[in-house]
Amino acid sequence: MQSLVKRLNLDPYVLALLSTVLLASLLPAQGIWAPIADRVTDVAIALLFFLHGAKLSREAIVSGAKAWKLHAATMAVTFGLFPLIGLALRALPGIDPGLGTGLLFLTLLPSTVQSSIAFTAIAGGNVAAAVCGASFSNLAGIFVTPLLTALLITGKTQGISSDPIITIASQLLLPFVAGHLMRPVIGPFVHRHKKLVGYVDRGSILLVVYTAFGAAVLDGLWHKVTLGELALIVVIALAMLAVVMSAIGVLGRALGFSREDRIVMLFCGSKKSLASGIPLAAVLFPAAQMGAIILPVMFFHQIQLMVCAVLARRFAAETERLAGAPAPQ
């Protein structure tokens, strides 16, 4: 099997993601297993942030928080360039109004947190800046996304729950701070076992994919979309991702960012959060519109993970070559 993967030049992690999607479609976690799967995923994500907190030095964290130019550029892509693309897509002739609204709502969402940081870590980017940038984007999205939705879609404002803020603080930031505070005790162990952090990075993403896609399948995903609509969503998502990533590459170089910071901007700026998107859609739209609204979000989420998995591995191989060490198999 490994020789076949090498001959076909397939990325093993992409194969793992595809296998996870297939598993979630055939055997989604349901009944008593659904809350167990959700809890295991939450623990894996918390462990990921705990280990990254223990891994990073105080100097690196301060440097990441001070990278205001990087964070401003990333936010401009997330809440500026993306919505402009969404407006253009909705205005295209022949686009179904429900699909157009779903695509526009997708572009108004904040970046992911855990996968952005995990891919940044895999690629050898500035993890401290990624933690700060992705967390800030997700927190800002709790307020910015409803505002943009009111201006561009619904035409009215609605209240937003504080639950996402509590989730981010308890599941992401608190473990990160705890890990960093324990760095003097466990830091040497984490540095000696770098592969452990890599396994947690990749494993947490696979768990997120399984739980998110499985929930969509149980909600009737495969009965709500035709093959033609699915193909159109996939094509649009790939095109949107290509445009945004190309623009990020040009902008990052134009602003003189280092390679590590350009990696942060690529993985934080090109992502849209499914975890934030579905709860926000539930608050902002009537239940009858939810299917069409969240469908582009669900598929874009899976596509961005697969594309970023390939890019992260390529960056990782390049990082190893620059460091004079053999690339990981």
Rank of each mutant, 00 (worst) to 15 (best):
F267K: 11
I233D: 03
S258E: 08
E229W: 05
G198F: 14
G214N: 12
K194A: 13
K194Y: 00
E229Y: 10
V250I: 13
V197D: 09
A237Y: 07
P164L: 04
G203L: 03
I205S: 04
V200M: 00
L251A: 15
G249S: 08
L255A: 12
D219C: 01
L218I: 02
S170I: 07
W222P: 01
R183I: 10
I166N: 10
S246P: 07
M240Y: 05
F213D: 12
R259I: 03
C268Q: 12
R259P: 02
P164N: 03
A169N: 06
V185N: 06
Y199K: 01
F213T: 10
H180P: 01
D163M: 09
Y210Q: 00
A212T: 14
Y199L: 14
L227I: 08
V264C: 00
H193A: 11
D261H: 11
L174P: 02
V234W: 00
K224T: 09
A239N: 10
L227Q: 06
M265H: 13
K272A: 06
T226G: 09
K224H: 11
A216I: 05
I166R: 15
G179S: 03
R202P: 04
P184D: 03
G179V: 06
E229Q: 15
L241I: 06
K271S: 12
T167C: 01
I168S: 11
P184K: 01
Q171E: 06
R192Q: 15
G220F: 14
I168D: 12
G269S: 14
V225E: 07
M265A: 14
M182Q: 08
K224F: 11
Y210H: 13
P175C: 09
R253Q: 13
D261Q: 15
G179F: 00
T226Y: 00
G269R: 11
G203I: 00
H180G: 13
I248T: 12
F267A: 02
M182V: 07
G179P: 08
T211C: 10
G203T: 06
L207D: 13
Q171P: 00
I186A: 08
I263F: 02
D201S: 07
L173R: 10
G228S: 10
L173G: 06
K195T: 11
R262E: 14
L251Q: 12
A178V: 15
H180V: 03
L230W: 11
V190Y: 02
V190R: 02
T167A: 11
Y210A: 15
A212C: 10
R253Y: 05
S170E: 14
A178L: 15
G198Y: 12
V235P: 02
V200S: 01
I263Q: 06
I233M: 07
L218K: 12
I236L: 15
G269Y: 12
L227G: 13
F213H: 08
V217W: 04
G256R: 13
I166T: 14
H193L: 10
P164K: 06
G220R: 15
V190P: 07
T167L: 04
V243Q: 02
A212P: 06
H223C: 02
G249N: 08
V177H: 01
V217S: 01
H191W: 09
L241N: 15
T167Y: 00
V190H: 04
V197K: 02
D201M: 09
S270H: 06
L172R: 04
L218G: 15
A254M: 11
V250M: 12
G228D: 09
L227N: 04
E229C: 02
